[in-house]
């Protein structure tokens, strides 16, 4: 084999092993969710169960905890967060990209600084604030802290910079107001970027364990990750089959949504030049 063939082969080997590392836990989760308890605790590695225990595990998962409720909560929270984020980020990004006003550069720098602050760093003051407002343990507590996404503003601003100024001017000549331009001109042209941002947003808030753990107590408000964790703590401490079944159910909507939006997602990422 010549160097010309060797290099791509190595590259693929590296990518395959990286893919294997990423996919292994998912595969193990699914495999475990199909196994009877006896096979889960074997000392040898068994990739695929000899006897399928699908119905038992999944029925147990759905029975022992209100998984449906958790999924619905997850849906309510992620969709509300995303909608509010778009309502804030688009006008803000439009102003930063297309309007000329004093202090615009400074504001954009502040947005960039905002990206540098991890949510964990402000969790305690945020918790105290919500306590003062009496909003803890409610949907509002789960949603409000994330409605202003600096990342979203940044992403959309970068995209809007690529929209020609002439289009905005044409809309002004046609008599469309500035807010009208955001929603009827910029939003339709920015669909790929909004989709990409939507996936970032939905994935990170669907999977968020940290903030819901702090913000809510009532089981009726649990988001899917909290639900799965509660599941383990209570009864099924050693019952890994139903636990993995619950985890699979929780992750499935995300995987399906990603597969459906995959093409748009990659378009959006390519458009904004971020990898």
């Amino acid at each position: 084999m010549t160097a010309r063939h060797l290099l791509p082969a190595l590259r693929h080997a590296a990518l395959l092993s990286a893919g294997f590392v990423v996919l292994l836990p998912f595969f193990w989760m699914i495999a475990t969710s199909l196994k009877p308890p006896a096979e889960i605790f074997l000392s040898e590695i068994r990739w695929w169960p000899e006897t399928l225990h699908v119905r038992e595990n999944y029925a147990a998962a759905l029975e022992k905890a209100p998984l449906g409720r958790y999924l619905l909560n997850g849906l309510i929270v992620t969709v509300s967060i995303f909608v509010l984020q778009v309502m804030v980020a688009l006008p803000a990004a439009y102003a930063l990209a297309k309007l000329r006003f004093p202090g615009r550069g400074m504001l954009f720098v502040l947005v960039l600084f905002g990206i540098l602050i991890p949510p964990q760093a402000i969790a305690v003051p945020l918790f105290l604030l919500f306590h003062q407002l009496g909003l803890l343990d409610s949907y509002a507590a789960l949603v409000l802290p994330f409605t202003i996404s600096v990342f979203g503003i940044f992403l959309m601003r970068q995209f809007f910079m690529t929209v020609p100024d002439d289009l905005v001017d044409a809309a002004r000549m046609d008599g469309i107001s500035e807010f009208g331009i955001v929603w009827t001109v910029m939003l339709p042209t920015a669909i790929p970027a909004v989709t990409a941002f939507g996936i970032f947003s939905v994935v990170s808030h669907w999977n968020d364990y940290f903030w819901p753990l702090i913000a809510v107590n009532s089981e009726t408000l649990f988001t899917p990750p909290l639900g799965v964790a509660a599941f383990r703590n209570e009864e099924a401490g050693t019952d890994y089959g139903p636990l993995m079944a619950a985890a699979t159910i929780v992750i499935a909507p995300l995987v399906i949504a990603f597969l459906l939006a995959q093409r748009r997602f990659i378009e959006g990422i390519a458009l904004t030049g971020m990898k």
Binding site: P164, D166, L167, D169, A170, A171, M173, V185, P188, T189
Partner: peptide, 11 residues
């Protein structure tokens, strides 16, 4: 106004 880039609404 007619613009150099035409500035038609693409959608």
């Amino acid at each position: 106004m007619v613009f150099q880039s035409y500035a038609l609404y693409p959608h």
